[in-house]
Each structure stands twice: as structure tokens, then as C-alpha cells.
Computed example of a mutant assay.
Amino acid sequence: MFSTVLVALPAALICLFISSAPAHADLKLCNRMSYVVEAAIGVDYKAATATRGWFRIDPAACRVVAQGTLTAERILLNARALGVYGSSPIPQNGADMLCIAPDNFVIAAARQCRSGQSPAPFTQISPTATDDGNLVAYLAEDSEYDDEQARLAGIQRLLVIAGYDAAPIDGVDGPKTQAALAAFLKNRGLTPDIVQAPNFFAAMIDAVQSPSSTGLTWCNNTPHKIMAAVGTDDGKTVISRGWYRIDPGKCLHPDVTGQPRQIFSFAEAVDGENRALKFKDRPLNWGGATQLCTRESKFEINEQGDCGTRGLAITGFAAVDMSGGGKTLRFAMP
């Protein structure tokens, strides 16, 4: 009998299709989503809880996250999409708050976080036993992609973020997707055979995280993590959207679609717990005079009036001059 554990994404719900099975062998996670994800697992055994992460898994790929006999009373999961996807995915909701770290980690006592660690929600899973005696859990969207569709939808999503028109993101091949992919490969100096290579998603993400001659690009030249938000005005509606995570030394293209008349930008440096940083007693942020609505958690807001009375924050965005066809904003220390 199958049950479903929901992991929330605003663009698409992640589901873990699971069934009851004893944890007795290799545990494998398979990604049938259109996002490259990073996963962390938690193991409860005899009143002790340990966590381990991050395991990066491309669309349509699987990865063993625990080898050999897995002794556990409960197995738990936290999954996150890469920061390159910006405001679309959000962390899952779960009943167990366990410790994680920003980079690869193994935490033996995961219910009491120490310096450099932070609590995150984990969801209990019961993976399916396979014919070879191993265990598998599938990460899937409500679109219920198969492996081929998930891979193509993952390519489409990164093409859109990189500024190429591969919409809709549906996992269905066609002339529009092929034209966008061909243009991407040509502009990035990549040969067509890389599409089938194991490192293709890594190559696409590297391209998305580098400056572009089209659209808006944010580049983080600070030693801190930066969270950014974008505003667009199409002449009828002003939409603010965030937050996009930009790691130190990386660039990112917010997924701005269509041809907006005006684009606005706001960014701020944050610490490991996403608290705003100050430099010489002043907020370390990059904004301007245009006031738009935001909130602490990820958001998309299409009504900009009365922010305060609606429980929203008022944030000053900078207008971005896109007259040259493309603009790179580089955030640096004062």
C-alpha cells in the first residue's frame, strides 16, 4: 500500500512515493523532479539521531545515500533545490527539526545544533524494498514525470533561467525546446554531444552562474551569502519576487520572463542563519528608492500598495538600466 509525503514547492509539489519496508540494505534516492536537488538524511536509532548531507542528485538520476546494512528505527529526509532556481523551490515542511550545515556534513547528535549548524525540517520516509534487496525513495513533482520527462523538464527549466525561451516547462520535447537548447549550446561554446554526458547538468548550472550578455545577472563578489529579490513592471502590474540565493563568487540570473518595461533589484548579505549583516554599523545591502513589498520567507507579490497593513515589509529597490540588452550587477564590499 502506497502513501504520499508532500514536500512543498510553490511551483510544484514534491512527493515521496513510499511504502513500508524494513531498513536493511543500501538506501537510494531517485530524482524525478525538474530541479537539481541536494538531499540530507537523518537516522533515528535507540534515542540517538544522526544526519548526513549533502547528496546532489540530477533530474532522472539516482544516488546511494547509505551503504550496507542500515540500522534505523526511523529514516528522515530533507531535500532542497540548488540556489540557482531562485524563488521557485522552498525547503520541505517536516515534523522533526534536525541539524544541518551549509556544506557537506556528518552530525552525530543532530537534535542539539552547535556552532555552524542550523535546524531544518525533516520528513519521515519509509522507502520501498526493491527486488535486489535494496531500498529506494523517489522525489517527484505533482507533474508525475517519468525519468525521461524529468530530465527534459530539468533542461527546460535551466534554459529558461539562462534566458532562453524553452517554456512551458512540461517535459515534452518539441521545436521550441530544441531551438532554445541549440542556441544555448552555440552561445556557450558547447558541442551537442554534451547533452548526453553525465556532467551536462553541471555544465548548464556553471553557465547559468556566469555573467550573460542578455537579461539581468547578479554576481556576488563578497565573502558572504547574498539573498536577492527582483521586481518587474510590464506597464500593468508590478511584481516583486524573491529570495534568490547567490553564493560567494557565483553569479545568478533571476527568471525574468517576457519583456518588462522596467526591472528593479534589491540584495542583502546574510549570515548562516539568513540574518542581515552589517558592515561598519550599516546594513550590507544594495537597493534604491523604489519601494516594493517583500517578506522574510520566499514570495511573489503582484500588489504593491499598503505593504505594511498586509503584514509585508517595504523594501527599497534600485531601478536597473537594461537599455543595452543585458546588465550585470556586481555586489562587492564597500
Rank of each mutant, 00 (worst) to 15 (best):
V7A: 02
A11I: 15
L16D: 01
L16M: 11
L16F: 06
F17Y: 05
I18T: 05
S19E: 06
K28H: 14
K28I: 13
R32T: 04
S34R: 08
E38D: 00
V43M: 04
Y45E: 10
R52V: 01
R56P: 04
R56L: 07
I57A: 02
A61V: 04
V64W: 03
V64M: 03
A66E: 00
Q67A: 13
L77I: 06
L77R: 03
R80E: 07
R80K: 10
Y85H: 08
P91D: 03
Q92E: 09
N93E: 08
D96L: 01
C99A: 05
A101K: 15
A101Q: 15
D103P: 02
V106M: 03
C113W: 10
S115T: 12
Q117W: 04
S118G: 14
F122G: 05
T123E: 06
P127Y: 05
A129T: 07
A129P: 03
A140H: 05
S143K: 12
E144D: 10
E148S: 11
A150D: 00
A150T: 09
R157Q: 08
I161K: 01
A167M: 15
D173S: 14
A180D: 01
A180H: 10
A182T: 06
G189S: 05
I194N: 02
Q196C: 07
A197Y: 03
F200I: 01
D206C: 03
V208Q: 00
S210P: 03
C219Q: 09
P223L: 09
A228N: 05
A229S: 14
D234C: 12
K236C: 06
T237S: 09
R241L: 10
R245N: 06
L252R: 04
V256R: 08
G258K: 14
F266I: 12
A269M: 03
L292D: 02
S297N: 15
F299R: 11
E300K: 11
E300H: 13
N302A: 12
G305L: 09
T315D: 10
V320S: 05
D321I: 06
M322C: 13
K327I: 10
